[in-house]
Amino acid sequence: MSEATLPISPVNLGMESKPRSPLQNAWREFRRNQIAVFGGIFIIFVVLVAFIAPLITPYDFRTQNTAVSRSKPMTGYIVSETQAEQCHWNNTPLEWGCTIYLAGSDSLGRDLFSRVVYGTRVSISVAVIASVVSVVIGVIIGTISGYFGGWIDDVFMRIVDFLYAIPVLPIIILMQVYFQALARRNVAAGLGGYLLELNQNMGGLLFLFIAIGVLNWIGMARLARGQVLTYKNKEFVEAAESVGASHQRIIFKHLLPNIFGPLLVAETLAIPGYIFLEAILSFIGLGVNPPIPSWGSMINEGYQGVRSNAHLVLVPGIALTLLTLAFNFMGDGLRDAFDPRMRGRK
């Protein structure tokens, strides 16, 4: 390194009086990284937008106005009296009797801005649920197989070998085709019927979660296993064992807190992948059911007409890029914050 390395002392570690936990240290480090904090704030903003979407969108995401399809952004249209009556901002009829599309309208005359805003709901829920599913399954399996070893670990490694050879996207595509065909027939009874109905009410998201979740826990499980293997022979675990701590206590008190950081980092950096996957599936028509807006399906509706109506692709495309950018910035910041070797390298 070019800068002079100071000898390690309490002073340059910033530990004058009381010691901090690794988590507090990481949080301090993270806060200093402006671009990562900005990424985090942006994600919170998008989550907020997803929650209050009905309050901030001028139109419903379904409402078609074929009189003004594919209008350019920020243009107003005076339409007939009857249609002018539908012109609302936040449920208040607008005085000027017009239609203004902030981001233009799509080929069916639906407000692009409202659709992009509602699209945050799909992306955010995929991000949240896919990561919760992959972390829960991954940590349980990874921790058990790393901690107990033996045949459990062998079985786990065989499953990993198998899943690593699976071409994920083609298989997910097949699964989605299967689910959607079932949903169209709507014949199943009992639990299957209940799931089908639930999926229908969720706009096709349930099966998307299942398809994405089933194949993406493997990375988390490998990571958790590796981390547990690293820590389980450390002195503090041996010390805990020697005073008779139970497996449960060692796992929850000593191991999991230590592997929290790497898992958080890996998951944050994996989320863009889940968001892409949903976007790709919706792009090829196997994601959410229309008319629910997903950024991927909006790109699909727009990309063939990109010559004349670039905004149909650019608006959802920019939204998608900004969200993944925010996750990557935050993930990088978290990684630097949790990795003590990165301290002082900035």
Partner: peptide, 18 residues
């Protein structure tokens, strides 16, 4: 590089076409 990782090819393709 972060920008490059974050732009999905789903978006980059149409943008390059444009």
């Amino acid at each position: 590089a972060v920008l490059g990782v974050s732009v999905p090819n789903l978006v980059l393709g149409p943008v390059l076409i444009l």
